[in-house]
């Protein structure tokens, strides 16, 4: 049985196939045309990698900004739930997730089953997101990938303190005009983003077992600053942090299928007591057993 999760964000689309409780294949590509179209393409690509066909899919769950446009999906879940269950599946000790995506930043606290217990999400302001890092890196004249390594070589953090990400650019420019070291400015940028995220994390009560996901988790400098700001060390994840949403969606597809089957069984049991014998069948996914109600 194969379960699929498709996550279409504002910039990239991701698909994950789950077979026998393992990630059978995944695929990421930039969003193109419409979300529905992107979802279809990314799902096809993942199916190809797994050498499977569309008909093999038991259930498909959609998530991300484009979730409402995926007409072929059987169910949809919010990114917050999906990121939670995805990271939990990737590492079962996870109880708190810090996800820094392109446009938003979420902090999700999970219960022992990997489901959302509490969450916080940045509102009105985008300072403290991946896009901010990207904009500021561009201002500084380095690539996003280079920002982290630069920051790690810094001697000190030059404050980039303005609250608005567009005006943080002015802070950066000011330092540049003064001829300050790019490394120190880079450190200022990463530290400032990390502080924003830490402030957001303060709105919920984190549970031990904190991990970081989303595109920004690949930026070692921000990750380091965040660990300092939160006073924790992040637990590792078994999969690419970018696909957590899609992975979570796939797990929800599986959960939903099992719930439906359980429901059928109960109905069946009520009408025919004999068939209850196979009701004890083990779930087919070892990774996220906790998800069962």
């Amino acid at each position: 049985m194969i379960y699929a999760g498709v996550d279409v964000g504002s910039l990239t689309a991701k698909a994950v196939l789950l077979r026998d409780g393992r990630v059978a294949a995944w695929h990421v590509e930039p969003v193109s045309a419409t979300p529905g179209e992107s979802a279809r393409r990314v799902l096809e690509a993942a199916l190809e990698k797994a050498q499977a066909r569309r008909d093999d899919l038991t259930r498909v769950c959609a998530t991300g900004y484009g979730r409402h446009e995926m007409t072929f999906a059987d169910l949809e879940r919010s990114e917050i739930s999906c990121h939670g269950l995805g990271t939990f599946t990737s590492n079962p000790v996870v109880r708190s997730v810090i996800d820094i995506g392109g446009q938003d930043c979420k902090v999700v606290v999970l219960d022992d089953a990997g489901l959302v217990d509490d969450f916080a999400m940045n509102d009105k302001c985008a300072a403290g997101t991946g896009r901010t890092l990207e904009l500021l890196a561009r201002t500084l004249g380095v690539s996003l990938g280079e920002l982290g390594p630069r920051a790690l070589r810094a001697r000190r953090a030059l404050p980039v303190s303005n609250k608005c990400s567009i005006f943080m650019e002015l802070d950066v420019m000011q330092w540049m005009h003064q001829g300050r070291r790019a490394e120190d400015i880079a450190r200022g940028i990463t530290a400032s983003v990390a502080r924003r995220v830490a402030a957001l994390a303060g709105k919920v009560t984190l549970r031990p077992g904190v991990c970081i996901s989303g595109g920004v988790s690949k930026n070692a400098a921000v990750v380091r600053e965040l660990e300092l700001a939160l006073g924790v060390r992040f637990v590792p994840l078994a999969h690419d942090p970018q696909i957590m949403g899609a992975l979570g969606a796939a797990c929800f597809a599986r959960l939903e299928h099992e719930r439906a089957r359980e429901h059928d069984r109960r109905v069946l049991r009520a009408s025919d007591p004999v068939s209850s014998v196979d009701a004890a069948a083990t779930p087919d996914c070892a990774g996220c057993t906790g998800g069962a109600p």
């Binding site: 900004y65 879940r77 919010s78 990114e79 917050i80 739930s81 938003d104 219960d111 089953a113 489901l115 959302v116 217990d117 509490d118 969450f119 999400m121 509102d123 009105k124």
Partner: peptide, 19 residues
């Protein structure tokens, strides 16, 4: 506006309550 953000927030909250 900001419908996308609000939607995610609301849906996640409902899922949380549902859990």
């Amino acid at each position: 506006g900001e419908v996308g953000q609000l939607k995610t927030r609301i849906q996640a909250f409902y899922e949380k309550v549902g859990n």
